[in-house]
Amino acid sequence: MKNKVVMDEKGIDRALARIAHEILERNKGTEKLVILGIPTRGYQLAIKLQEKIEQFEGVKLPVGAVDATLYRDDLGIKKDQPSLKKMEIPISIDGKKIIMVDDVLFTGRTIRAAMNALMDFGRPLSIQLAVLVDRGHRELPIKADYVGKNIPTSIKEGVKVHLKEIDGASEVIVEPAPEIKQ
């Protein structure tokens, strides 16, 4: 079986535009908003959202990165520890409405870790979650506030978000489950 492209560059752009509108609508404007992406692709999406909101509203929101690596719950059981990524909280998050951005929402564990990381930086007024893809299979009671596209998958399939800035082209693909060799 071959990879299946489920969103192309235009589709991604449209989804982000919609999410930007939803964020503005739900929060009644841009007041107190801070966008924090989870590296690597979540951070890139956060920058794109910042651009969209600036287009629509003329306000450039603070954007940053929240690396959840050190808060992961699987470090002690993984054979290899992941390398550390960018942690960049541009302003105090106390009393702010945080829009946390990631590319794919799957088990919810990364979001849990990222929220824990965030809490070490202060007490936000609220945390809202925006994801480009929700592929289901949650293991924690976590739900996205803004979803680009719901893509039902089997647990063995892979979902990959590629972004032009990082991967050369923008698309979302579903990889088939690895074939079990007879």
């Binding site: 050190l70 808060y71 470090l75 390398s83 550390l84 942690m87 990381a117």
Partner: peptide
């Protein structure tokens, strides 16, 4: 050295603690 560079950020925080090596 690359990993140490990342850890410098943790020491610059208000809450200078991460749960990584809990236990």
């Amino acid at each position: 050295l690359a990993t140490a560079e990342s850890f410098k950020e943790v020491s610059a925080r208000e809450i200078k603690k991460v749960p990584t090596l809990r236990g």
